[in-house]
Nucleic acid binder design. Structure first.
Lengths: 144, 144
DNA sequence: TTGTTAGTAGATAATAGTTATCAACTAATA
DNA sequence: TATTAGTTGATAACTATTATCTACTAACAA
């Protein structure tokens, strides 16, 4: 977890003005272990910052993403989800509820590089799909 | 490439009425090597089937997806892209133009199964990201 | 500390992609 | 060929996201 001063330094290094709103969005995201959507972040922040606008959350996430400070997880649930962890890692996505879980496994970080004609590959991510613990339990119950 | 009779049998096996529209959408998709969006398919089909509705293309793709007859590739370009290949394979996605390329590499089909607490994993897919041949060329030119 | 300015926030309109609705039609069965 | 459940086409509605524009604020210099 980064201290507020570290965050401040990070923004300065990127030469991007640090506003209260940006700090709030970034801290909220780093403080969470789920992968909230823009809307979900907005809902959480609204309590502490009643004047915050949803558009600002969107713009801030976009900015942070361009700066490489947050990662974007494209979920099948149409709504983009964000992740404060930008280091290489992978995800397990629940097909039922859309829940996303982080996976850290160095064995997945280096994969055989495939032959994609002419493609200049800069990275990869592995998406596991299936059912999360609670949805698997529900599915088990209802099918019996 | 499936014959029309094979396609017909496939639909019958799934107990889904085979309409002209469904056949057209499915054949168009299997006949293409790119990963068209609903809109792109609609544009192609409109010439041969002027009365076809975009809503029908969406519904048909959804139906085919539920039946496991087509795969859905969630692209970062907001628009969902479809793939007639449902066998396990992976993708390279161009960060610049959104182009998606199929990758077949059995080494990627069996990955070490990660420890996702309680997650019941049913499959996975690997997304490589980078620049496709033509975008890489363009990027090289403009940065010099 | 204050003044200046480039860039940002908030409010809201606009847009893009997708889904819902519903009357008219059609594929599949008898 | 008649029946009926399910589908199509047209379009309205909806959801997520982006654009626009004016007032505001962070960052820097004096």
């Amino acid at each position: 977890m980064k201290t507020r001063e570290e965050v401040r330094a990070l923004f300065r290094a990127k030469k991007v003005p640090l506003t209260h709103q940006r700090l709030a969005v970034y801290e909220e995201l780093t403080g969470r272990k789920d992968h909230p959507s823009a809307e979900a972040l907005y809902a959480s922040l609204k309590k502490a910052y009643p004047s915050l606008s949803l558009a600002t959350v969107y713009k801030t996430l976009q900015t942070l993403h361009e700066l490489g400070m947050v990662a974007r997880v494209d979920s099948p649930a149409a709504q983009a989800r964000y992740d404060a962890i930008v280091e290489t890692h992978h995800h397990a996505v629940c097909a039922a509820c859309g829940d996303i879980q982080d996976l850290f496994d160095p064995r997945l970080d280096r994969l055989p590089s495939p032959s994609a004609k002419g493609f200049q590959i800069s990275g990869h991510s592995v998406h596991f799909h299936g059912l999360c613990a609670s949805c698997a339990k529900k599915a088990g119950r209802s099918s019996k």
